[in-house]
Simulated assay, not measured.
Amino acid sequence: MYRLSNTVIGFLNLFSLLASIPIIGAGLWMAKDSTTCENFLQTPLLIIGFIVLIISLAGFVGACFNVAWALWVYLVVMLLLILGLMIITVFGFVVTSQGGGVGVQGRVYREYELKEYSSWLRDRVKDPNYWTKIRGCILGSKTCASLGAWTLVDYLRNDMTPVQSGCCKPPTSCVYDSTTVMMDQDPDCFKWNNNPNVLCYECDSCKAGVLETIRRDWHKLSVLNVVVLILLIGIYCIGCCAFQNTRRADTDYPYGHNRMTKVRPRWDFYWWRWWRDRREQLW
């Protein structure tokens, strides 16, 4: 049972050290993937992976080899990571609290409006430079190509992803007539074009569909952050115990002594000398 917390924290950090490798690998793989539009996940994955790698290494060395300064660095960085994850998690829940789209009568899929989402997300997709990258990402992923063979029955029965609903077709409310076009329609109706490279990629509904995809993934990431926070707080508490044990070991067994040659307290030395003098007087 001696220094059980050190052993536990050593194994926990060994496992987290090994787990950081696929996290970093996933971030690097996503950076090379040209078919996904969720580039915002690359940086968090890489940052989290490297932080877990560093603090796990420091915690493993400090717990297994009784290096007090390594455990101290481990606890400080772990505390900063916990605080940072708390801020990111709260921000994520606030940002993803809006949206979700509205149902379309007689259809399975939902449609999305840009005004439904938080101003922070709207500002992101309204940036021309950011949207140019997202637009190219959608074109490269061939997301709309799968809808090219759909019939009217398919549009009535099949579901769509948010990006397909917003970018690959005009809003369902649009009315196109061979002779006249209603002028009081959704502005997206006039941005639609049958050209496969145009479609509705400049529509607000397309931007809303992208935000809905980001919102769903970010919400899942926030839920995962809650689980990670609980685990990190538990590991941090064990790490505090390991740090106290290491400091206590340095105090109880100073340099030049080991566990078998523990220094006697001062009062014990005086008591033994008094008993030796009394014994000599008696004999």
Rank of each mutant, 00 (worst) to 15 (best):
T213D: 07
I134E: 06
V52Q: 00
C167Y: 01
V163L: 08
T213M: 13
T43Y: 09
G49P: 05
W120A: 11
Y74C: 11
Y236R: 01
C241S: 15
G92Q: 05
V228N: 02
D268G: 00
T89H: 04
R247P: 00
G10E: 00
D252Q: 09
S119Q: 14
T180G: 05
V125G: 07
A68E: 13
G103D: 15
Y109K: 12
V163A: 04
S205Y: 09
E202R: 07
L18R: 07
I47C: 05
T36F: 03
V77P: 01
L75C: 13
Y109C: 01
F50A: 14
T261G: 07
I55C: 02
L211V: 14
C240K: 09
R107S: 05
L46M: 10
Q185H: 02
V223Y: 11
G49S: 04
G106Y: 05
N129Q: 14
G84H: 08
G140K: 12
I23L: 15
E212C: 06
V52A: 10
K220L: 08
F93L: 11
M260T: 10
P162D: 08
G103M: 08
C200N: 15
C168N: 08
W29D: 11
L80V: 14
T96Q: 02
C167Q: 04
L4Q: 12
L231A: 13
